[in-house]
Design a protein around this nucleic acid. Sequence first.
DNA 1: GTGAAAGCGCTAACAG
DNA 2: CTGTTAGCGCTTTCAC
Lengths: 343, 343
Amino acid sequence: MKEIANKAGVSVSTVSLVLNGRDEGRVKSEIADNVRAIATKLGYRSNPLASSLRTGKTHILGFISEEVATTPYAGGMILGAQTAASQFGYMLITVSTDGENSESEEIAALKRYGTDGFLYAKMSNRITHAPSSLAKTPLVLVDATDSLGKIPSVEPDEFQIGYDATTRLVKAGCARIAYVGCSEPMIAQDGRLEGYQAALRDACLDYDDRLVVNVLNNGPALTAVSDLFDAEHPDGFFCFNDARAWYVYECAARRGLTVGKDISVIGVDNHRVFAETLEPMLTTVELPHFEMGYWAVAKLVSIIEGRSMDDVSRPATTAPLPPIDAPIPAKIHCTLIEKASVK
Amino acid sequence: MKEIANKAGVSVSTVSLVLNGRDEGRVKSEIADNVRAIATKLGYRSNPLASSLRTGKTHILGFISEEVATTPYAGGMILGAQTAASQFGYMLITVSTDGENSESEEIAALKRYGTDGFLYAKMSNRITHAPSSLAKTPLVLVDATDSLGKIPSVEPDEFQIGYDATTRLVKAGCARIAYVGCSEPMIAQDGRLEGYQAALRDACLDYDDRLVVNVLNNGPALTAVSDLFDAEHPDGFFCFNDARAWYVYECAARRGLTVGKDISVIGVDNHRVFAETLEPMLTTVELPHFEMGYWAVAKLVSIIEGRSMDDVSRPATTAPLPPIDAPIPAKIHCTLIEKASVK
DNA sequence: GTGAAAGCGCTAACAG
DNA sequence: CTGTTAGCGCTTTCAC
């Protein structure tokens, strides 16, 4: 910077002003242009550390997630977050906290590096109590719902997922549509079940709770789905996730039924691997992980910089996205991507 | 720091010396102790940015991976890397580069933040040509093999994986052991096939290439495995990964065969989701992702700081780990974890 | 043994 | 409109 000040015959302060775009009406435009030209010629890159030291702003965002280690699709969220971050001139530091203990440590470490704000992400939408150490910093929850409803969050529209998936099965000609849900209490579970019921209602089909089975995994899950097959003979299955869809596949295979012909299956893709392996047999609903990550960062940046971000170009997506300065907590809708015909 | 210098009645330089452990024979021990006491009482935390500005060392490591977004188990590696990083007093910045284009940009961004060194990770061991922009910085490859054999790397022992898995099937009483491999050229594929062959040889079983089928995925993979079933009637399967094991499951289910009774299946766990869903039916070999991440960082730190790290405590692991200053490229072995009996 | 002073690269008052 | 100056918090010679 000193070097370019020399070459341009101005002082470093002028260079600083120009390079930070704060030269409007302060520096003669021709000299500003000259400075910029020399800067690019010299391949000047600002030293973010030095400016951080002075300004207190690091342009570093902390992305905290408990479960990066265990879920495959956290990656999409991170990628979206990273895309937005680099677009807005920020750097993303991702920390996966294994248990409760390491979490506060990691947060402390990040804070010492002067993180401007935090993303706090969950692997599936649930009521979340953000760590108190994050209370005083800009914070956005991702795929999580604040227990107090005060912290901005970006979440999928679970009701819509259930509604869209069920409607899709109806349109495929299914009359006895089962819901293979999750037996753990989750926002997603409730929302999707409601969506399922609403879709049935709108299709003038009766809701029958014998067609709903909530399972966990492994043997018991397989048994439960197996029983459902034998007792109710459903012709369509809306599955909480692709792992649960697998149980349906397994049961169908054992009975000589072909998915896509004898029965229809649609599942929410949580694992990618299943969806890829079963493709093109399984129709999946994809959660907008990338978009959630992207919008969470966009929102966070808007909070940090105290400005609306209408001028920012948006990521390519089929999801209906709200304006970035939508009321808090902001929600985004979910994309329904059809990977293959179901019947 | 100024504050604690005041309270202790010494100058900031003294405080700096003490807090950096560089007081040996320079600062009177009682005054040093006093400084340390005051520092902890005040809850002093050094400002890493400020010291970086002076020293040029940021204690930031860049973890570059193309595929964090698509693989579930990258998380284990990242977690291991993060664990080691925080243990050694470093911060890890993970960037997932989507395509080639963003990679150099992300690297440039990291470098501007003064990254001390880089980890370059792949999702599966393959010959890798590290980006030239990384040539001048400390660099360690993770789950990848340098095309020139010059860059240190941490890799699983693929031969051992094939050998151990096959031996396990032999011990379970299998006589016709199939290998369901990968039709893409990969280091892992070759190594595992050799291990498979060596294990058969040691068990006095003939190698028969009709029992080897290399597949990709989806329908063609399922068909190939199906043909293998009908033509060769294997009683044991060593699968390249758990996704490929699924094809065996599907074929078995269609034929009324029960895994763990009629046939034995062992697969390398690449996806976690499958392993969890099929548990306790599938016996899996787990790749030492955590350990790879951990050791890669340990190695990188030893390069950066120019010292051997024998004194560092090691992570709990069942894998035989080499000393951290082992000849380059360092290799680590793989853990064979038995999740359930196979027969 | 300890302190004073310079400076890492940059920004922001405040003069001019 | 532009330059001078004074730091951000820390490390590191170099005197004392």
